[in-house]
Design a protein around this nucleic acid. Structure first.
Lengths: 234, 234
DNA sequence: TAATCGTCGATTGTCGACAGTTTGATCTTG
DNA sequence: CAAGATCAAACTGTCGACAATCGACGATTA
């Protein structure tokens, strides 16, 4: 008899259980704006809709709460998180802080394989830019940044990135459209990668700052333009 | 008729519910080493012990999982997280990255009131150093660093700090004793505060680096010295 | 008419139960 | 004696139910 796997490793993705599925469906609904910010998440409703009981729904909701997509009001239930302009600032402030560091670490760990992955992802970004599919574009964008965090090799940092990204996905998904020119965005990734390949810390930081800062200003502007969120249903 | 409170603000502290209490008790047990790393957390057992049903225990466990204290193995249950040397490195790496930034921000936001709070906390640190109470010492230490994050004014950053701190508390709690000289530790906070008061970014970063780096090396050393964790019961 | 109070439906928090899986031990067999 | 098969106890994942609480609506009163 062999002990198949060390009982404790790192957060094991539970692919098969209901909680994960419910969480994914909920996230989807929120990001797509089907559950607008401020709307109440009725446990029984979600449960019925997904054909499960309330228990998995509650646990999934707690997950999304920790992720920042939901807010729990004791005895009142879960509500879809509402973002204000200063939330955007918080998220990008933290993200910038982390990604600067991640990029520097990534440069230190860069191998030919990981470098190629990054290059290929930039290509994908350019290809996606032609598709006129904002959601997809955002997704591929994150994939590039996530790659950097992966290469940096700090699992906790990666998780933090994922959490921030899920919040941003929600905001951007609700804004509906992306920043103006997708190709422009794709192009601004190149100097970041170039700096990482060059392995020059200051230049890396400078380019990451520029790139993320650009998105920050852009998203900030859009959020301030469309502040009254798409009518919180109910 | 007025709407008393905006239904969605920021994570409302739920003081009264069971989940929170269970989570606190569990955290306590883990940090104090009563639930050693690797040990299984049997839902029914905890539930019986605390006189509640399994539902709140499960939700609390999910909370601690997100916090990094527990690891969930689908269909096998929750286990107390085991830390390896590289976990320490990850935590401190991320913490350093965040606290650097936090300190710079704190300097920017510093008011006479917040400055006094920081000063007073350093005094507390010195007073506590005489008490020979490692747990308390660690707690007051965190309180200082947490203050900096608070003053920085980024709620997400504060939450990240809290998460990292809870992991570190666990590790340090298990190590049992603190780094060598408590007064020495207390003293090394002073230049950090001085730099923040001076508002000189580079100096702030340098001193934070030195201070946190010291703890990093120290904790890293201790963890490597006592690697076989206190016998994972069961 | 406006404000307050009481009532009722809806929803959450918590519980106990059941089925399926895992674990650990005993038994079997080469 | 070792390796594998077998079996029972323990535990998790999920469900439906019930009491407590919340929110809204309508009735009551000044």
């Amino acid at each position: 008899m062999r002990t198949i796997s060390p009982p404790v490793g790192l957060p094991a993705l539970n692919e098969t259980d209901l909680v994960g599925q419910v969480a994914r469906r909920l996230t989807e609904a929120i990001v797509q704006g089907r559950l607008p910010p401020g709307s109440k998440v009725v446990e029984a409703g979600i449960a019925r809709e997904l054909g499960v009981s309330r228990a998995p729904v509650r646990e999934a909701a707690r997950l999304l709460e920790q992720q920042g997509l939901l807010v729990a009001n004791p005895r009142r239930g879960f509500f879809v998180r509402q973002f204000a302009a200063d939330d955007i600032d918080e998220i990008y402030d933290l993200r910038l802080c982390v990604e600067r560091h991640a990029a520097v670490l990534a440069a230190r760990n860069l191998t030919p394989e990981t470098r190629d992955k990054l290059r290929r992802q930039i290509e994908v970004l350019h290809e996606t830019a032609d598709l006129d599919d904002p959601a997809r574009q955002v997704e591929e964008d994150y994939r590039f940044h996530r790659l950097i965090c992966e290469i940096a090799g700090n699992r906790r940092m990666l998780r933090l990135f994922d959490d921030l990204a899920s919040e941003l996905r929600m905001v951007i998904g609700l804004i509906g459209r992306l920043y103006d020119d997708p190709h422009e965005i794709a192009r601004t990734h190149e100097p970041v990668l170039a700096a990482i390949e060059a392995g020059h810390p200051e230049r890396i930081v400078a380019h990451v700052d520029y790139h993320i800062g650009h998105a920050w200003r852009e998203v900030g502007r859009l959020v301030r333009e469309i502040p009254p969120w798409p009518a919180a249903a109910k």
